[in-house]
Amino acid sequence: MREKDSLISRRENIRDEVEKAFKKEGAPDASQIVASLLPEPLQIRAFFAGKQWWDLTLEGFCHDYIGDASACLTFMTPLGIDYYLPAYLLMAVERYEEGDVLTQSLAYRLSLYISKDATYRLSFLNIEKQKAIASVLQFLWDGYEDEGAAEAIEDFWGGFLRGK
């Protein structure tokens, strides 16, 4: 039971860290979330328009979004990613196994985004946000042996972990 309590406590601590880092501010205008006028990006824009990041749920993606919800961040502007990333981070921490590709591919996607930083600009996030991302990745590695998380930590995010 002690291990389960520890896992719950770590999840709560990470939720607090993510919420403090990303804050609960109003959603950007839909035109700032996705800039492309192609069909899939427009579908993403329509889904996210007016939604607060903290209101997004795994159930909402499963029932209300038509398409690959794990790819949504890929089509977003840096502002859109900055705003909606915390929802994905928390879903990965709190619903990793249930979330399938949405949660289980997040670490790989973070590596992709940082490798294409000229487009996604994750390195421009403030230090608190980068530390929160690193904490999520460390949790995914520790709790689920997510190899993508280990790679992402090695590639970039490890420098933001406490004690490094």
Results as ranks from 00 to 15, higher is better:
121 R>F: 05
108 Y>W: 15
143 G>T: 10
115 S>P: 01
37 L>E: 15
99 G>Q: 00
15 R>N: 10
85 L>E: 05
17 E>V: 11
81 I>T: 09
5 D>S: 10
81 I>Q: 13
155 D>Q: 12
127 I>M: 13
93 V>W: 00
107 A>D: 00
156 F>H: 11
27 A>R: 03
52 Q>A: 15
106 L>N: 00
162 R>W: 04
159 G>D: 08
115 S>L: 11
1 M>S: 15
109 R>D: 12
116 K>A: 13
134 A>R: 03
130 Q>I: 08
14 I>Q: 03
3 E>H: 09
64 D>A: 10
64 D>K: 11
21 A>V: 07
131 K>A: 15
81 I>H: 06
143 G>A: 15
54 W>L: 09
145 E>A: 06
8 I>N: 08
135 S>T: 05
101 V>E: 03
116 K>T: 14
79 L>T: 12
137 L>I: 01
29 D>E: 14
160 F>S: 02
143 G>Q: 12
4 K>M: 13
92 A>W: 00
146 D>L: 00
87 A>L: 05
82 D>M: 07
125 L>N: 02
24 K>L: 11
10 R>E: 11
150 A>V: 07
30 A>E: 15
3 E>I: 10
8 I>G: 03
54 W>T: 05
96 Y>L: 00
131 K>S: 11
161 L>P: 05
156 F>V: 06
91 M>W: 00
21 A>L: 07
55 D>A: 12
147 E>I: 05
63 H>Q: 15
1 M>A: 11
32 Q>C: 07
106 L>I: 01
78 P>E: 10
86 P>A: 10
28 P>M: 10
135 S>R: 06
147 E>Q: 07
7 L>C: 11
100 D>V: 01
29 D>C: 05
143 G>I: 02
10 R>T: 08
49 A>T: 06
53 W>S: 08
137 L>T: 00
23 K>R: 14
156 F>M: 05
68 D>I: 04
136 V>C: 10
98 E>Q: 14
64 D>F: 03
164 K>G: 15
29 D>S: 15
112 L>I: 10
1 M>Q: 14
46 A>Y: 10
124 F>C: 10
22 F>L: 14
24 K>V: 11
135 S>K: 08
88 Y>I: 04
101 V>K: 01
